Amino acid sequence: MSMNLQKIETTTDLTKEEFIEKYFIPQKPVVIKNASKNWPANQKWDLNFMKEIAGDKVVPLYDNRPIDPKSKFNSPHAEMKMSDYIDLLKKEPTEYRIFLWNILKAVPELQNDFKYPDYGLTFLKSIPTLFFGGTNSFTFMHYDIDLANIFHYHFDGKKQCILFDQNQNNYLYKVPNSLLTLRDIDFSNPNLEKWPALKNASGYITDLEHGDMLYIPEGYWHYMKYITPGFSMSLRTIPKKPKNLAKAVYNIVVMRNIENLMRKTLGEKWMNWKYKKAISDTHKLNNLA
């Protein structure tokens, strides 16, 4: 038995009106094939180019080790020069990923290589961010702290994306006071005997290739697995739904600070309590022993 995942709708082009009516208003994901075809980035951006233009930059790296109870929210696990990191990606599989790297701060000239799509939305133009990963590396299932609408453009290689909307929270083993599900769950091949509530979840799946764009509606859970080494860029807009905007403000102003305080004061006890409560709450909601 596997999870109930349907393929995300795929198209080759969308007008502003079509996007708003079919996907933005109903908050439904979509993939646009070769969406960056008119950008200089479509022809230029690959791992070799990034090594050439940003090789001397020191980048923060993340992997899949257990959270350090004393570390702050989203603290990186290591740092490395971009040139060395890309060499590593090409040499062998690695869990090290680059997460939320702001290209405008690091390499301002890269902003000339792409344009914000005209979908009738106001983009947060100060924070276009890049994400890199090696073969079989993955991000844990999570949703973004600001519940933004995300326009996720992929470059160089292939990655798998699995999405759930917030209506699926009761089935996903959400960790209290966080944006994560349990890190033990491999959403690309979950053990449904160990995590039986996932049998009740309904989500979406797709693979992205160079040039493709995935629209991730506001607040959607997303899991990303790199099939080959590659990278993506996310462009984002603030959530339009008042409920989601309020939740975003709460996450940034309250939740994140509470999490940092509890990690500092209780450390491992706090993390263990959250792990156990994620399981007990999910099983209780699903009438599981």
Score class of each variant (00 low, 15 high):
P40S: 06
N287F: 04
P229W: 08
I162G: 01
F24W: 15
Y116M: 07
I53G: 05
I216D: 02
K51L: 00
M141C: 14
K72T: 10
A201R: 05
V249E: 14
I227Q: 06
D56I: 12
D146A: 15
N112K: 11
T10Q: 13
P66C: 05
G203W: 07
I216T: 03
Q43F: 10
A278C: 02
T181G: 13
I98C: 05
Y153A: 07
M80H: 06
K51G: 04
W39I: 09
N260K: 13
T181D: 11
D156P: 01
F19R: 03
T139D: 11
R183G: 13
A289E: 11
N112Q: 08
P93L: 06
H152E: 03
W101A: 04
N257S: 08
M224F: 09
W45R: 05
T15Q: 10
L110F: 04
I252G: 10
Q160G: 07
K22I: 09
K28P: 02
R65A: 01
P29W: 08
N38Y: 13
L5Y: 00
K7Q: 15
Y96V: 00
A54Q: 02
D46H: 13
K158S: 03
T10I: 12
K194Y: 04
N287S: 10
I252T: 14
S137P: 08
L110C: 06
Q27L: 08
Y171S: 04
A54H: 06
E95P: 12
R236L: 12
E92P: 03
L121N: 07
W45P: 04
D156H: 10
Y275S: 13
T135I: 09
A54Y: 03
D156L: 01
Q43A: 15
K241R: 11
P76S: 05
W39T: 06
P196H: 08
K269Y: 04
M224N: 05
G157K: 04
M262N: 12
K57E: 08
P26V: 00
K57C: 06
H77L: 11
L61F: 06
K90W: 14
L5V: 02
F138D: 02
N4T: 00
D212L: 03
K269A: 04
V253R: 13
N200C: 03
G230W: 01
A278H: 03
P76Y: 00
K264G: 02
S126G: 12
V175G: 09
Y223H: 14
W221H: 10
F151Q: 00
N286V: 02
T129S: 15
Y223P: 07
L245Q: 08
E52A: 07
K37F: 03
V30M: 03
A106I: 05
D156Y: 08
S280W: 01
S126N: 14
Y153Q: 09
E259Q: 14
P60S: 05
A35H: 01
K159F: 00
L285W: 11
E9P: 05
K81A: 08
F99W: 15
K276C: 08
T94M: 00
N260I: 06
V254D: 12
P239S: 01
L100M: 15
